[in-house]
């Protein structure tokens, strides 16, 4: 997988697609996020790692316009933006694929793919979905992501977990997303399915999207990531480019990484 990912590091001439500067978010006196900074480049994958409660979901929700940030700045193409709603973020090209509510299981693949922005034909009273076109494009776009759907009429519920995530990813990519936020896409999946989703993540980056990949699994993050933001209790533990950190260090930095190491040592002694 390493060889397929784009080379790490940021070329100095490139303005980041999305930049987060000293972001802070407070719920009453609870600090959800404090002084978090990172960058997302087109064609690169930025991984956000952290254990449960580290502030990952607050981070996503702030980026996708659900919560306005309390301090710090969001910059898109070097210009500061403020989102009033998720729709705003979507219009700016930030698409979020949530882990559990990405698709409607009882609807067919093509209906899911186009949901909310269906291609239409005909004039008003008889305005209807252009079904052949919708099916064709859905099939083509999914194939570009490397998913060969047998029949776009089959319901999404019959797809595997990884394929469902990929339908959502392909959809976001097609609808002009520039930054794709993936909320724990691999957490509910088995090893093979996770590998499938990781492949789609790399595929999305190769198509020049900036990807923010949220996960608690460094094993999933390291092979695909170009930049790693590690969160713990709402604070940034560091924001590294790939050449600045190894997988072992990454694991250790994660909350629990040190504890796991201690555990290993302890077990080794007692055996």
């Amino acid at each position: 997988m390493n060889d397929t990912s784009p080379s790490p590091g940021r070329p100095p001439t490139d303005t980041p697609l999305l930049e987060v500067r000293n972001l802070g978010k407070y719920f009453g006196n609870v600090i959800a996020l404090h002084d978090v900074s990172t960058t997302v480049l087109a064609g690169h994958v930025t991984c956000v790692l952290g254990d449960n409660g580290a502030g990952k979901s607050s981070f996503i929700k702030t980026l996708s316009g659900v919560h306005p940030p309390d301090s710090g700045q969001l910059l898109i193409d070097g210009e500061e933006v403020r989102f009033a709603s998720p729709r705003d973020a979507l219009d700016t090209g930030i698409a979020t694929v949530y882990q559990d509510l990405a698709v409607v299981p009882l609807m067919s693949v093509w209906r899911n793919f186009w949901l909310g922005d269906e291609p239409k034909k005909g004039f008003w009273p008889f305005r209807r979905i252009d079904i052949p076109k919708a099916k064709r494009i859905a099939k083509d776009e999914l194939r570009k992501m490397g998913i060969d759907i047998r029949d776009t009429d089959q319901t999404v519920g019959t797809l595997s977990g990884g394929e469902r995530q990929s339908v959502a990813i392909a959809r976001a990519a097609y609808f002009g997303a520039r930054v794709l936020i993936l909320d724990e896409p691999t957490s509910a999946l088995g090893v093979k399915q996770s590998a499938v989703v990781l492949r789609y993540i790399v595929e999305a980056a190769r198509r020049d999207l900036g990807v923010i990949f949220i996960t608690h699994n460094p094993l999933h993050a390291y092979p695909v990531g170009d930049r790693f933001l590690i969160l713990n209790r709402g604070q940034s533990l560091g924001n590294f480019a790939k050449d600045e950190i190894t997988q072992d260090e990454l694991t250790k930095l994660m909350a629990g990484g040190a504890e796991l190491h201690e555990l290993q040592v302890e077990f080794a002694k007692t055996r």
């Binding site: 949530y98 609807m107 186009w114 949901l115 239409k120 305005r127």
Partner: peptide, 23 residues
């Protein structure tokens, strides 16, 4: 056939997903 029909299925099948998709 209509777009509205797609939305009916979506809000009944998974309302949050539909909302996130802009329905």
């Amino acid at each position: 056939r209509a777009q509205f029909g797609n939305w009916i299925f979506a809000v009944g099948g998974n309302k949050e997903a539909a909302r996130v998709q802009g329905v």
